[in-house]
Amino acid sequence: MRVPRATAASASFADLHRTDAPLLLPNAWDHASATAMARQGFQAIGTTSLAVAAAAGRPDGASATRDETLRLALTLGSQPFLLSVDAECGFSDDPDEVAQLARQLAAAGAVGINLEDALGPVARHVAKIAAVKSAVPALFVNARTDTYWLGEHGTAEHSTAETLDRLDAYQQAGADGVFVPGLTDAQEIAVLVERVDVPLNILYSPAGPTVVHLAELGVSRISLGSLLYRRALGAALEAVDAVRAGRTPSGRTPTYQEVESLAP
């Protein structure tokens, strides 16, 4: 029997988490950035909720950009790369509403979804994960815990223990992968790699382990999050400052024609 395209693409995305090298996932914010990254050879591309929120003039992580996130998925989902969507906490505390969003994202062509717990009740996040997997079994659910991103802990041991408790619950609920942004300690990363049964996703940090080191630790997926968007914004500010000061902006500047070529 022929495998539907969406299911085949989802399987391909899942397979990228189980190779000899970790999946390095750049995060885009519009058609041009996603297409440019795809042309650099990336098979899979994620979105970044910070950029989606910033472009709309809204705060990140406040469940305020459901429509914008879905529009971006509709723009990118038909492109020749595998798309994973950062959906914050699912933009709702109602598991059925999160499942409905997952259906819409999958229909748009997404093969993966990031769902963050924002340090809310474990049972609530478990219910969301289970609802999404029931509604769209092929969609790769990357269950994120914010114990290191938002948490305040007295000791590293406490952080690790709480993180493992949450990740274990999310795995049991059906998560295909788990994500721990903000964790940069190599020893703690190694502990999580040994203890979880699904691919572990770590957010790259210039202050943390290199991509090579993360690969050696056994990390399966390395996300860039909002880094590229923030770097692009920083480059724009540096360029305008240089022009205002009478200097020629430095750094790589794509030509007008190169940017035009990114259009469909």
Rank of each mutant, 00 (worst) to 15 (best):
M1V: 10
P4G: 01
R5I: 15
R5G: 07
T7K: 13
S12E: 12
F13D: 01
D20M: 01
D20A: 15
P22R: 01
N27L: 04
S33I: 03
M37R: 07
R39T: 03
F42R: 00
T47Y: 06
S49Q: 07
S49G: 09
A62H: 15
S63C: 11
T65E: 08
T65S: 13
L70A: 02
L72A: 02
D86C: 07
C89F: 11
D93E: 14
L105C: 07
L105Y: 11
A107L: 03
A110S: 09
V111F: 07
E116Y: 13
L119G: 04
A123H: 13
R124T: 12
A130D: 09
V136H: 00
P137R: 10
P137S: 05
L139S: 02
L139K: 06
F140K: 08
R144T: 05
T145C: 08
L150Q: 07
H153C: 05
T155S: 15
E157T: 08
E157L: 09
E162L: 11
T163K: 00
R166F: 09
A169M: 06
G174Y: 04
G174N: 06
A175P: 01
F179P: 01
F179N: 02
P181H: 08
D185T: 12
Q187R: 13
Q187P: 01
Q187H: 13
V191R: 15
Y204S: 02
P206K: 11
G208C: 05
V211E: 14
H213T: 14
R221G: 01
S223D: 08
L233E: 13
E238P: 03
E238A: 15
A239P: 08
R252P: 07
Q257N: 13
S261Q: 14
